[in-house]
Lab assay of single mutants.
Amino acid sequence: MLDDRARMEAAKKEKVEQILAEFQLQEEDLKKVMRRMQKEMDRGLRLETHEEASVKMLPTYVRSTPEGSEVGDFLSLDLGGTNFRVMLVKVGEGEEGQWSVKTKHQMYSIPEDAMTGTAEMLFDYISECISDFLDKHQMKHKKLPLGFTFSFPVRHEDIDKGILLNWTKGFKASGAEGNNVVGLLRDAIKRRGDFEMDVVAMVNDTVATMISCYYEDHQCEVGMIVGTGCNACYMEEMQNVELVEGDEGRMCVNTEWGAFGDSGELDEFLLEYDRLVDESSANPGQQLYEKLIGGKYMGELVRLVLLRLVDENLLFHGEASEQLRTRGAFETRFVSQVESDTGDRKQIYNILSTLGLRPSTTDCDIVRRACESVSTRAAHMCSAGLAGVINRMRESRSEDVMRITVGVDGSVYKLHPSFKERFHASVRRLTPSCEITFIESEEGSGRGAALVSAVACKKACMLGQ
């Protein structure tokens, strides 16, 4: 009897593995994704193909990295998701002549009506938060230079001027797309009239992360975010950046690689679950690469896999709870928690219980395998993109072996128990001629924006502006 049951459990697990095998990517698959990513990057950089390229390769006008001589107080704003952060950054000489960066910050959550109302409502709310922060720190009387981390696709015309191309991540505030974001912020500050600010720089969160990590390690020339969304930036040779005049030196390019796949480059790798996630998203047909990796989508992918296993009578005796059938019910943090389970399955059992399920031991094991399959594919897909960037940098610099540091931020990278190990191992397999160091950014977005502002202020002083 026991043997029969054991055989049935083994057969069930084997069927589960057959279904989950769809998520496995072979090294040849990853090399294919990497080569296609490089081709799209090239198209994004070139003037004649930029418009139709899915990977936009947006110039950021960040050319210099901090040298350690900029000092002063800077205000930093960070808008990239449902939370908005205001930070005071003091850049100065530390002990023994070292450079020191001290920060104080406060988080504000953005109400739904500000995210989806008008641009005026959104930026009025942001300036209200700045006003509140300055009151708390008794700094209303000071006109501070301000660095703005704005983590949406922007076409820069200068370091302090950028046109919002399109909202992502659930934002829909009308009247912002096609307009200068810094102008919208300046107008809102003017409307309030109770404080003055000098907006000197606007950067993407990947750029802010790279600059913040450069402060720790001067070989950091790539910034990457794996959180709600997924994106990367890197220092490109100016001669390859056709959208900006000049051939000397390097400029940081914001790849906006989340949109890779929007022209069909990933079609052969998309599964039924991916198509369902895409169809029910706020932007169907867009940001397809990001939807395979980002935390906004990972939990939902797992939920759809679990429903398939229920329908195949391989999980929960073929019956799903009402909660499990509800879109968004299986949160991405559950994926991390399930994979963090120590082996007694308590954590998995508790999560499934909150979803109205009474799982068996085998159910718990199957749910864990589903989570591992989805998150491992995410790590491997992400590795193909980064390997594409790094191999490109090595080739354009004609280096036999390139040493490089990548600064990384984002909740999936930082909080998932195995993502970074799987990701690092896969990147290294795909970049055999590179020695890569990964560092995690601390308060990256805010500190990085302030350091970019410090560079901009120093330049302005040198130019006598």
Rank of each mutant, 00 (worst) to 15 (best):
D205S: 07
D78E: 10
K346H: 15
L276R: 08
V406T: 04
S396H: 14
E435K: 12
D247V: 01
G229W: 11
M402F: 10
D132M: 14
G446F: 14
N179V: 12
D124N: 11
H380W: 08
G299R: 02
G223S: 07
L352C: 06
E435M: 13
T354V: 09
M57G: 02
V207P: 02
Y273F: 12
K12M: 15
G223P: 00
S263H: 10
A11G: 13
L20Y: 14
A232I: 09
M87R: 05
K102V: 10
Q337M: 12
L271R: 02
A188F: 02
A119Q: 10
R186S: 08
S453Q: 15
L352V: 03
K102R: 04
A201C: 02
L307H: 03
T361A: 07
F150T: 14
L288T: 15
Q38F: 04
A454R: 12
L355V: 03
D194F: 14
K102E: 13
G294L: 10
R345L: 09
E120S: 12
Q239G: 12
Q323W: 12
E95I: 08
V452Q: 04
G318L: 04
R308Y: 05
K31A: 12
T376F: 05
E236F: 00
D365M: 11
G81R: 15
D217I: 11
L164H: 12
P432N: 14
F316V: 12
R327I: 12
T103M: 03
V154A: 05
H416V: 10
T431P: 01
A188M: 01
F84A: 08
T361W: 05
Q26R: 06
T103L: 06
H218Y: 08
T82A: 09
S263E: 07
G294D: 15
N180M: 15
T209N: 02
R46L: 14
P432W: 15
L306C: 10
M235F: 01
R85P: 02
D194Y: 15
R308V: 02
T116C: 06
K140A: 06
L355R: 03
K32Q: 04
Q347L: 03
S383C: 06
V182L: 14
K291V: 10
V222L: 03
R325Y: 13
A114T: 15
T354G: 08
K90P: 00
T116Q: 10
G68R: 07
E40C: 09
I225C: 01
